[in-house]
Design a protein around this nucleic acid. Structure first.
Lengths: 186, 186
DNA sequence: GTCTATAGGCTGATAGAC
DNA sequence: GTCTATCAGCCTATAGAC
């Protein structure tokens, strides 16, 4: 059977999208190659014509997911630093983000597993995180504040997701917004 | 073979200590029953005379680990709110805590997996987290600030651990300390 | 490029001897 | 209470047909 030109690239992109969703939702270790490929309408054997190993997928995923996040940030329509940041806070610290890890940021879902991964994965991650940090530093005018924002954002979604009631989840993201807005004002 | 009275309780406590270390270091899903039991000098069959299932271990672990963290907090020797908090910030946001997950807090290591666990696990987690939140609220005098602190602390250690160089790790925890100290002052 | 089939190993969990 | 032995199922990865 022949495949049209560009087919592999298209499938590759599709695999990254599907595996991103699955792994953010269920975890990297908990998501098997077979499960992933069947969700993409293929069988496990075809996985290795796209990725050298499961670790290679994680590496690729780190780049594609964090690049997508940066694109989201740069598509923020607001100009002034205050409006820009307010828009991002509302989007990131939303109950939707808490309830839908599969559609959300990589950081709260997969950071713990990335911290335990190969150096090559962490170096790729560092590279992308530094780009995000640079964008935020530009808006905040302060490198330290930018790092603290990243930690607060990821930490809030992470903790909110562990809690069993939406009431507490809302309390956590609300509290986090208050702290960050206060940090901006001072 | 007979076993002296209190032997099971002693082994049970030992198992919790060892499994806590292993799972904080390598992750819950990634740590098998066999690996865990051999680290404790036993074989896998004996696991099930201590815990009904692996999930049951996680549930028990949540209580024992977070209780231990609360004990640490309450053993803080300082009286005034400012000194008490400064002591905790220095202890939690230390490079040792970044480099030694096996000896550190459960939150940065296992929150993502707890968020994906059974409701029974998350309810147990909620119960303990609320106790910690209450302690912090008492010191900070503000419920929202207490939630935001918890998120910032866990998030900072989580993100720092993903980074490949100690230089960046130090930068992240330093930035986090600055934000929290600033929040205290205002 | 994807398929089926399969290898070898690890997983969580159980049964029965001691 | 812990042991050995074992189960069925899943895992990552590979070989070869189409």
């Amino acid at each position: 059977m022949r495949y049209p030109p560009g087919y592999k690239e298209k499938k590759h992109t599709e695999l990254l999208k599907i595996s991103g969703s699955l792994m953010k939702k269920n975890g990297f270790a908990a998501t098997g190659v077979d499960t992933l490929m069947h969700a993409a309408g293929m069988t496990s054997g075809a996985f290795y014509s796209h990725f050298a190993s499961k670790t290679d997928l994680l590496k690729t995923l780190v780049t594609s997911e964090l690049t997508a996040s940066q694109t989201l940030w740069t598509s923020n329509p607001h100009d002034t630093a205050e409006d820009w940041l307010d828009f991002e806070l509302e989007r990131y610290l939303s109950i939707q983000h808490v309830l839908q890890p599969e559609a959300g940021c990589l950081l709260p879902s997969l950071s713990a597993e990335i911290a335990r991964a190969d150096l090559s994965v962490r170096e790729r991650y560092e590279q992308e995180l530094l780009k995000g940090h640079a964008i935020l530093t530009q808006r905040l005018g302060d490198e330290n504040l930018a790092w603290a924002f990243i930690c607060q954002l990821a930490g809030s979604i992470l903790i909110a997701r562990t809690l069993p009631t939406e009431e507490l989840q809302r309390m956590v993201i609300h509290a986090s917004k208050l702290l960050l807005r206060n940090a901006l004002a001072s």
